[in-house]
Design a protein around this nucleic acid. Structure first.
Lengths: 337, 337
DNA sequence: CTGTTAGCGCTTTCAT
DNA sequence: ATGAAAGCGCTAACAG
């Protein structure tokens, strides 16, 4: 049906090696023949088969990205950075959305052993040692985003420092009863993502540094989500000595906290301060104070690292840290006296 | 480096056709040899080259999706439906994010002519006639999502009816000064998406049906986005006779409307009713009244249609319509008297 | 049932 | 500078 390189060669009266050279801008072809070949290509509306090309070359110019819950605003923004950078280099992006542990395992097992992608980006998931071993056995270049593991290249932020930053902000405002709302603590054992855990660690450090006791009744963990965070917040507000400020491990969870406050007509920040993490798009709309991390950039930078890995010879740095900063809006204020 | 089918055949002492048959679960192989081949595959840690397989088969088991601004919550949710359905059939999804007209044109031109995808999903973009012709010339199966064009298969909602639904809701509450905030009217000529335009048409129809005049000063159009909608809303509220209700062409724009109201301390819905469109995830958080459309389902259904197209013989219906419904929350109420 | 062979469409030596 | 030919790893048609 569609014209092949052979047709072009025949019609142009040249060898098909020459057509290939024209296609690949090889200098080893005279201007005259190049012109002739080009016009035949035009005439035949020839378009080289990318799949045959990939096969011959052994490269696909495609990168796979595995992401948990890719609808989360923070993940989407990372993906946007990935796609933009990939597209600028003519690479394709195939995405795998992971919403269960089973699928997480499946993706991490299958994607690298397929030769359908030249490289792999893993977002917010920590590969296990045996999985890392499989990557190198399959010689599949991998870059982690928002995660760190076994010397793999990656870009992330210092979540512990972020947790401290958020908590310190609340402390400096004068809060003493500061609660934490985050993902389940057992998460690292199943899904293997750790941000919430690290932010929680930073939270505890900041409290300790301020000489405050660690009060476990102020620590609430549940599945990542607005609704879950809302439920947890109601639990906190039911406490005999409820917190005056809440640090949510993500902006999404902070939204749940805000909902709970609204449920009870508790004014924010007058009677309750709320701080989130990520600075996703809507954080601004909500006036949410949060810890900003560069999401788009994390994806873009990860692709750059992957390209370094791809062009053998250049070793990508094992791991990079991007900067975070505090974005103060209108959901945090000194506690009511 | 990695073992090939030839290695497996050699070690197992069989022809490589037999190995291929084992790989493809052909019944034409005895249990004994199958077992032997399987164990050699295990032993050699052989994994068939998908890329060679694709090349040989002429299929990639990959579907391409082109989406404008794939970070928009509504688009992401459609993509989630696409990915989930694709994954359940073992298909891969490669996404193209379009944020400029140039890239829109490039994607619509290049993606179908590459044989790197078996089918194409186009979200919220209306292909031009010559583009549609190119699809069929390249015999690339295409399914549209949130769009309609030239007899192409697709799934969408009746945006005109949706616009009427939203506007009628406001009318029934007693509003008479109802404004519209949406995308630029010229949009169909550039980016070629039309939802906002259709919703605007529905809005006008509802007003006309109610015997109300069409007042152009109540019609505001600008680039899709919260900030832009906010600016437009300020213009509306500056009018000598400001509207008592605003219909925003999307939830995102409705958020901008809400921001403007907040800027001026105008209570919603007491002094201003606001209704959006889409029912994206955060609409619930905001208590936004809106017109719901099935986003996830639109993606899932589109994939089903594409699969019908793929399995030749089954002709997919030219276009399907999904149901919409009004979700009344807390941003609409009767006008202040 | 199973081994052999002929491509799939391209890139890349290797001669010329 | 250019033509011819050898694969890349797999599937499928063809003999047995």
């Amino acid at each position: 049906m569609a014209a092949t390189i052979r047709d072009v060669a025949r019609v142009a009266g040249v060898g098909l090696g020459t057509v290939s050279r024209v296609l690949n801008n090889s200098p080893l072809v005279s201007a005259a023949t190049r012109q002739r070949v080009l016009s035949v290509i035009e005439e035949l509306r020839y378009s080289p088969s990318q799949i045959a090309r990939n096969f011959s070359l052994g490269r696909t110019r495609t990168i796979a990205a595995i992401a948990p819950f890719f609808t989360r605003p923070s993940v989407v923004e990372r993906l946007r950075g990935i796609e933009a950078t990939l597209a600028s280099e003519g690479y394709h992006l195939v995405v795998f959305n992971v919403e269960t542990v089973a699928r997480r395992d499946e993706c991490l097992r299958e994607v690298p052993r397929n030769d359908r992608a030249d490289g792999l980006l893993i977002i917010s998931l920590v590969p296990r040692p045996e999985e890392i071993r499989a990557f190198s056995e399959a010689s599949m270049p991998v870059v982690l985003i928002d995660a760190c593991a076994g010397g793999l290249s990656g870009v992330s932020v210092d979540d512990v420092a972020g947790g401290e930053l958020a908590t310190t902000h609340l402390l400096e405002l004068g809060h003493r009863r500061i609660a934490f709302v985050g993902d389940p603590l057992e998460d690292p054992l199943t899904f293997n993502f750790t941000s919430s855990y690290d932010r929680f660690t930073g939270y505890q450090r900041a409290l300790t540094a301020a000489g405050l006791p660690i009060q476990t009744e102020y620590h609430r963990h549940s599945l990542h989500g607005r609704y879950e965070a809302r439920v947890l917040t109601h639990e906190l507000l039911n406490l005999p000595d409820p917190p005056t400020a809440i640090f949510a491990a993500s902006d999404t969870q902070a939204m749940g906290v805000l909902e709970a406050a609204r449920d009870r007509d508790i004014p924010v920040p007058a009677a309750l301060s709320v701080i989130g993490f990520d600075d996703i798009d809507i954080a601004e709309h909500l006036g949410l104070t949060t810890v900003r991390q560069p999401l788009f950039e994390s994806g873009a930078r990860a692709v750059e690292l992957l390209f370094m890995l791809l062009s053998e010879g250049i070793a990508a740095p094992p791991a990079e840290r991007l900067a975070i900063d505090l974005v103060i809006r209108t959901t945090t204020a000194p506690p009511a006296t």
